[in-house]
Amino acid sequence: MIHMRTKEKAIEILMMACSFLTVLTTLGIILVLLIDSIKFFSEVSIVDFFTDTQWTPLFSEKHFGILPLLTGTLLTTFIAVLVAVPLGLTIAIYLNEYASPKFTNIVKPILEVLAAVPTVVYGFFALQFVTPLLQQFIPDLRGFNALSPGLVMGVMIIPYITSLSEDALRAVPSSLREASYGMGATKFQTAFKVLVPAASSGIMVSIILAISRALGETMIVAIAAGQEPRLTFNPKESVETITTYIVQVSMGDVPQDSLEYRTIFAAGLTLFLFTFILNNISFWIRKKFQNKYE
């Protein structure tokens, strides 16, 4: 009997250790980011960091303004969201309300493959295919630009929006559907006036997660958006995102434990704060609106 209890206890501890491992990893990441960021901010003023409009840590005349990297990140993310939200939602509504279950069961897994394509493939797709294609229509589009990787990233995050939104729409009780159809509403009216509002919290969560994913995306923008930190919202220009910069420095020959090297931790911390806040908002939405029909 005692033996059984010891065994149970051991299993419990093992499982707890597993979950602690993830917590510790997160804490470790935050710690590393913080330590090097603090060292960084002891040399560079935090005001300059957020107000300087140039980011040139690797040049002889150094500027440490995160804004160009931030605008680069936000610009590519914005373009991606502009593509993914309307498309992703439309697909979700179509699959849920219009398509036959057979069709949905075939299309949904195929759609999810989009999220499984290695991002390096997307990167080269953007650089070698989408950019030249766009240049046919927009002659002054740069070889490296924000538009093309933004669009491709948008396609990549469609499954995040479609999949979660479709689940949210499916969770709307069919009694609401019946109520709407029973009053003579069309499919379109039912979808947009009843189902989408009723599923709005789930749809919001899906959009936020997709934004987080786009903010943190590295390979596509590193390959196709360029490496020129530039304070611009012009999608035709070449921009550098925070993630691209981190790759650039960590792959380069910057000596470790130098100020230049620490810039990546400050930049990383900035990015982390963004995604952290977004994840918390989505967690809060999910908590607040869950059990609405129970």
Partner: peptide
């Protein structure tokens, strides 16, 4: 369906 309305078994108001 506008001329022939329906009330269902379980109350199903919209949120």
């Amino acid at each position: 369906r506008k001329r022939v309305g329906m009330v269902f078994q379980k109350p199903n108001p919209f949120p």
